[in-house]
Design a protein around this nucleic acid. Structure first.
Lengths: 242, 242
DNA sequence: GTGAATGGTTCTCGGTCCAGACCTTGATCG
DNA sequence: CGATCAAGGTCTGGACCGAGAACCATTCAC
């Protein structure tokens, strides 16, 4: 009966939104955000609120601001936020697993729903995202193709609540993959996405769900290596799909 | 790139919080909320913000306010909100199924996690909630015991994100069960809860997940009858657990 | 050097929120 | 019957936030 309730300031909401978009890879290191006046209008907020949000992101090392005619708000290489994220995951041991478990809950069922409701038109973006991963050059394109796949699949499932929750949960993980050597995750991700797509396209809900679970358990292993530096406890993953 | 971002007023947040608590059955028809000054302090907001929230709830027919020494804010019989909810679900056909599908995603995995992590101490509240349903007299007690079970199970799963999401999704459904004849849902719910509890206590994640799915599909059937008045399309439920 | 595009700053108006004081209502008890 | 008390109802002053608009400062291309 005693939980605290609070509202969010607009600047905070904008900062969260932008941070999530950076985490998800919608905008990548080196890229420039739209000009303040323009972005404020796009988001439907006053410029001063957007500026306060940018100030927060700058303090956390997500963006750098330059003035002048080629100026603007540029996304950094994200070294500092990535390291801060890693430190936080190390400090609060269970949190990373909780996020992954949450994603498993959402995305296995998302894959199953997409398989049951699959339509050619709904699956087209999913297929494109799978193909895009083949031609990927560089981390930026990799992260964007990866994100596109999961979001497209959520949309194909046709459930707005699931789609929003998937996007939100994905925003809590992100960038530290850039700290990994590059070849392996791409190949593994490519293989997993392919398998999920095929199961969904075949209308096999159980297989789609199982493939998604396997994919996310693979993500968990990767993140464990990144965060903790060694592959400990990687065998407790072997329980059968529910 | 063009999504709108917005903040919430504190009064709106408080109203949503209280409405959800009523939906979930934490406070039942006829019960009195704490005095305004007291409740405002509990929630950590100014009295004027709480009053604005109560004004909203009063307009929607959730509460009645009486003055004097036995006065206070009383929860109504909820006839009007229940009817409004039903009308909304009829108008937006897919929404009810989306909410149920969302709950299935969250709660099947919650049950599986609880089964894998089961500890005697964590399961005690779940067991109590199952037993409470045996002794239930009246709708109020039924709804509270039902709610207690799901929340206790989410807590036993030990994942805060899942727990919050489960509570939030449950807040979107609720009360219309009171419009049903009373005996059947109790017996069905009792049987389902018992099955879920036994699977969790046995550490059988797959069985717990399947039992939860069956329970929620049963809920879907009940709600279909309540909202649409007939049992249509009740057979498309028969696909096997994933 | 000039122009254009950008971020930086300041002002005003209205809305939100808080804290506190005070008023009104209605049940109850001496 | 009247006093009391616990509850909701109302008002005020001040702090802060958000929207909108105008203007300042910096940088770069030409």
């Amino acid at each position: 009966m005693a939980r605290q309730v609070s509202s969010t300031t607009l600047a905070q909401a904008v900062a969260d939104h932008l941070r999530m978009r950076i985490h998800r890879g919608d905008v990548s290191p080196g890229e420039r955000l739209p000009a303040e006046r323009e972005l404020a209008e796009q988001l439907g907020v006053a410029r001063i609120s957007l500026r306060e949000a940018i100030r927060q992101l700058r303090e956390d090392g997500y963006v750098e601001v330059r003035r002048g005619s080629t100026g603007g708000t540029y996304v950094t290489e994200l070294h500092r936020p990535a390291e801060a994220w890693r430190a936080r995951m190390r400090a609060q041991a269970g949190e990373m697993d909780d996020i992954i478990d949450f994603r498993i809950a959402l995305e296995t069922e998302t894959a199953a729903l997409a398989a049951r409701r699959h339509t050619a038109v709904g699956l087209a973006p999913v297929r494109e995202a799978v193909l895009a991963l083949h031609d990927v050059i560089g981390r930026t394109a990799f992260r964007q193709a990866d994100s596109r796949f999961h979001v497209a699949l959520a949309r194909a499932a046709g459930n707005e609540r699931l789609e929003e929750a998937v996007e939100s949960a994905r925003g809590e993980l992100f960038s530290p993959r850039d700290l990994l050597p590059f070849r392996e995750p791409v190949e593994e991700t490519l293989r997993d996405h392919q398998a999920i797509y095929e199961a969904v396209a075949a209308g096999d809900a159980a297989a789609a769900s199982a493939a998604m679970r396997a994919h996310l358990e693979g993500t968990r292993r990767q993140l464990r290596i990144i965060v903790f530096g060694a592959e400990d406890g990687a065998d407790e993953v072997a329980w059968s799909p529910v």
